[in-house]
Nucleic acid binder design. Structure first.
Lengths: 136, 136
DNA sequence: TTTCATTTTTGTAATCATTACAAATATATA
DNA sequence: TATATATTTGTAATGATTACAAAAATGAAA
């Protein structure tokens, strides 16, 4: 956990003023590593910050995404999830237990056929199936 | 367009009773090839079928997806899109013109590192960027 | 064809995630 | 301290989707 000691500084480096709420939200993402929904973050943090508003979570995550220190995970239709790991990696969702797994893959091996001269800025690779723990 | 002449038969082959509405929805998907939203389909078809309900579009698409003759495209957070092409292919969305492009890629050489013994059932590859027509 | 059961469609209301917006609070600066 | 700016909060609005029950269509049996 490279951020653990100084999330405030990390936010500053990325031109985000480190308010108490912002630090808490980022801390949650880094500590849990669970690709949470807005609701999961809110339910947890409202224990620490009784006046917390869900709008703040939305605002904060929007800001983090704009500053590219958080990425959006849209593996399911209905729920947007968030990830403090912005390096190139994919997501696997187990249809039995519902758990989300990270995995690494080589972008260069995708060998995309028919997008000559397109400028690719973002890549999202989502897999669904059965995870090793749910296999009988 | 391999379905053009007999969408009814194609639905039957896939154990779906070919009602008028179902045929029209599938016809739309095949003819347009535009990865439409529910709203796009509804707005077009309500011209032919004045009594059409948006719930019918939702029901019909859900049925098509369950019977695997239509796939879901979730490249944008807010809008679910649908595709009558269920073969393995990816989707590119241009952030300038908003157009969706299909592309082919090789699933086999993804060389995924850390999902040993996972059963992969679905793959979604989404790219964002600038399409060739929007490049200056 | 008529009757009855089943399937499909329709319309309305409910749900749920997200956004808009303005007031309240906190922070930074002069 | 006074003032401007940024952030947070709470409520209301939006918009996609789902739930649900009534209406309509379809199919089978008599």
């Amino acid at each position: 956990m490279k951020f653990e000691s100084n999330i405030g500084d990390y936010l500053k480096e990325n031109e985000i003023k480190p308010s108490f709420q912002r630090i808490k939200v980022f801390e949650y993402l880094v500590d849990k590593m669970n690709h949470p929904t807005v609701d999961m973050i809110y339910k947890e943090l409202v224990n620490d910050i009784p006046t917390l508003s869900k709008t703040t979570i939305y605002n904060t995550l929007k800001l983090f995404v704009e500053h590219k220190i958080v990425s959006v995970v849209n593996i399911e239709d209905n729920e947007t999830r968030y990830d403090a790991d912005v390096s190139n990696h994919g997501h696997f969702k187990c249809s039995k237990c519902g758990k989300l797994y990270d995995f690494n893959y080589e972008n260069s091996n995708l060998s995309i056929k028919n997008l000559q001269n397109f400028k690719i800025e973002k890549t999202h690779l989502y897999l669904n199936g059965i995870c090793v723990n749910c296999m009988d």
